[in-house]
Nucleic acid binder design. Structure first.
Lengths: 217, 217
DNA sequence: AACAAAATTAAACAACTGTTTAATTTAAAC
DNA sequence: GTTTAAATTAAACAGTTGTTTAATTTTGTT
């Protein structure tokens, strides 16, 4: 009857209606979380019938999976170019951190969702795309740090695996306690908060990582 | 009739039944998240009637609030004592980080809950206890850093507000991507993972913060 | 124009949600 | 033992949830 193929694992192409739904879902999931977002609110916001979501995606969870693969499609190759660039290792670190933050900041929605929905004991939802992405990131970072170590600029007793938790952890923690820090740092307006991330927070993280890499105790 | 005072802001004392409920709630909230945990499942696990939760705590959200204040009671005082201790600022930083991690690690449940439930745009749930806790933490940290700055040990252009996001963010990010790091660092057994946190991760964070505080660029 | 497939709809469904009710049992005080 | 308040219960309540049905409209093909 309604012969829709739900598991289009290799190459998913979404039509206009599906993309419309995905965009609304992204906004609402990011705003309220997966559980607190009803498919009725999605359908209402997207101005489509509730049944269309089941019709197109199969279920609410499948909708989330589709959303993830829709948004993390081209993300993978972003960092690889950087480590190949003709820059000093320390400047590469600066650029890498800036790239990280900018990238995540521009795709707040999906990263917020990922951060939440896949970190809980939410083992029902498993996405291997995410694992590949993380491993790719680690590889690029390792290349840069090894280069710096060979040049004698970076210390050699660094646990490289713990660098990105510090970068990303700091950023996410700051974002996730947004209202607290808005209040604390008097960043009431959205643009102020955004600006603070792009300048002070980015600089803080760069400073931190560089200090860790260079400082001799 | 059922004259129970729900807003016992200053001094809340819980009876055995309430503590029993709180403990079960903590486990289930941490395992499945706040939304995915029904009060029926709590009541079933705690072997009490559903109505008892409303009876004792007022509502599901109030239960969560009670849980938070129940678990974060004495952290505040531990930190306050630390900054008053007779130690060099740099050793206080070490101790503070160790205290943080140990504390959070021993109370995984509640911190996992906090991390998730209050980070989303979950503005319905507002807990002033949490805000006080964070501000208290910041105050203790500020005291230590200021002391170090006055002694000429720490640099003066540090944004103190961004220190604890780095400490906590790193720790949480590591924990929330547990399975990834277990795989990456070959910490398959639980005790190995725990041990890694207590040694390598703690050391990494201490090293990072100290480097940031001391390093002259 | 006629037909079939796809898209869209309103309504129903069944299960679950947090909370409240009113009745009953337990405990404490006198 | 009686009285009174607290604790506990099963049941009902009112709402929401994700999903499915079956009917209707739209679209594309011949």
């Amino acid at each position: 009857m309604f012969n829709i193929i739900f598991n289009m694992t290799s190459e998913e192409t979404f039509n206009d209606k599906q993309i419309q739904i995905l965009q609304v879902a992204e906004t609402l999931f990011a705003e309220n979380g997966f559980d607190r977002t009803s498919i009725r609110s999605i359908s209402k916001e997207a101005k489509i019938n509730v049944a269309m979501i089941s019709y197109y995606f199969g279920s609410k969870e499948k909708l989330l999976e589709s959303l993830v693969s829709y948004r993390t499609k081209d993300l993978k190759f972003q960092l690889e170019n950087l480590s190949a660039e003709n820059l000093e290792p320390i400047d590469k670190i600066d650029k890498l951190i800036e790239l990280y933050i900018n990238r995540i900041n521009c795709n707040k929605g999906i990263y917020r969702i990922l951060h939440f929905e896949f970190a809980v004991g939410n083992n029902d939802i498993k996405i291997e795309v995410l694992d590949e992405l993380r491993k790719g990131n680690l590889k690029s970072l390792t290349a840069i740090i090894k280069e710096g170590q060979n040049k004698g600029v970076f210390r050699k007793d660094i646990i490289i695996e713990l660098i990105s938790p510090t970068i990303l952890g700091t950023f996410f923690h700051f974002n996730m306690n947004k209202s607290f820090f808005q209040n604390l740092l008097h960043l009431n307006k959205e643009e102020q908060f955004e600006s603070y991330i792009k300048t002070s927070l980015t600089k803080h993280i760069q400073q931190t990582i560089k200090a860790l890499l260079i400082y001799e105790s």
